[in-house]
């Protein structure tokens, strides 16, 4: 029993911290730079698919399957997600904030379409299985495996956090803040606002891609329905509830919202009759939405304001 709780706790935390990494990426884009990305799920998906395609064993009729080491997969996940962010950012960052929202939303929809339909590339609706796990040799000892995985995720999160904190305090970070607060003033000081924005957008997208890859290798399989708009909304809820602009807030928000999500899932599991559960599970997004709206009304700047 205690072992069960421990196992569940490590699994829960590992997932929450993976979300926290995504949330840090969004915080760089939105909290620090003011870029309104409503396509978070798309960038996470790009990272997950890239790493999965490169590291899985060869599969007939599907692209990839090179069986590369996991670390190579993760690095290329970062690179490809960064490249995709660069393309999207290059085209859309000069648009008004709400147009940027609509286009990034569209980007995520299109990525979802590709994941679903481009079977030779993505495996189609069934997704990709047999994604190698780190510490696979220890897979028999479930508890140890989960702990090691949690430590790995925590280490990546800590590294991303430290780098972002460093950047936020650097001249580069201060320029981002200046552009967000008053673009005209920053431009008049000779700052290339769009260049800085693009850098922040690309770095944020790369971080989301890395998180996607980590998650894919933790679970072992991916499918298009893992990257629905609900994921984007969860991450936004995490950031706003935690406190946008604040990296610690982003991490806290991720843990809290994932906790709420899991708890409401468990509550539905125990309160609702079995043949009704799949339907009731859709209500979890309502719970998160309510939490978000209450925070917005009660504490608009989040739990840990900037």
């Amino acid at each position: 029993m205690i072992l069960d709780i421990f196992a569940y706790g490590t699994f829960f935390l590992a997932t929450a911290l993976t979300y926290a990494i995504v949330c840090l990426g969004l915080n760089l884009q939105w909290g620090q730079t003011g870029l309104f990305n409503v396509g978070v799920a798309g960038f996470v998906a790009i990272g997950a698919y890239t790493s999965a395609l490169l590291t899985t064993p060869a599969t007939p009729g599907r692209f990839g399957g090179y069986g590369l080491p996991i670390a190579v997969g993760w690095i290329l996940a970062i690179v490809v997600a960064a490249a995709a962010s660069w393309c999207v950012g290059k085209i859309t960052l000069r648009l008004r904030a709400d147009y940027l929202a609509i286009t990034t939303f569209g980007v995520a929809v299109v990525i979802q379409l590709v994941a679903l339909n481009a079977e030779p590339l993505t495996g189609g609706p069934f997704g990709i299985g047999f994604i190698p796990r780190p510490f696979a040799s220890l897979a028999e000892q479930v508890a140890l495996y989960d702990v090691l995985h949690l430590l790995l995720v925590a280490a990546v999160l800590a590294a991303v956090y430290l780098v972002l904190e460093r950047l936020a305090g650097s001249p580069w970070g201060r320029v981002l803040g200046a552009i967000r607060e008053d673009e005209e003033a920053a431009v008049s000081l000779g700052k290339d606002a769009n260049g800085f924005r693009l850098q922040a957008f690309v770095l944020g997208g790369a971080i989301m891609g890395l998180a996607g890859a980590i998650q894919a290798h933790f679970i072992g399989f991916i499918a298009p329905e893992n990257y629905l708009p609900a994921l984007t909304f969860q991450v936004w809820a995490m950031l706003i509830i935690g406190g946008s602009g604040n990296n610690r807030g982003a991490i806290l928000g991720a843990i809290l919202v994932w906790g709420l999500w899991s708890f409401s899932g468990a509550a539905i599991g125990s309160l609702v009759p079995a043949d009704f559960q799949a339907r009731a599970a859709t209500l979890r997004i309502v719970v998160v939405g309510l939490a978000l709206v209450s925070i917005l009304l009660w504490r608009p700047r989040g739990l840990l304001p900037e």
Partner: peptide, 8 residues
């Protein structure tokens, strides 16, 4: 905030 609220 309105856009994100409407999304949610």
């Amino acid at each position: 905030v309105l856009v994100i609220a409407s999304f949610g």
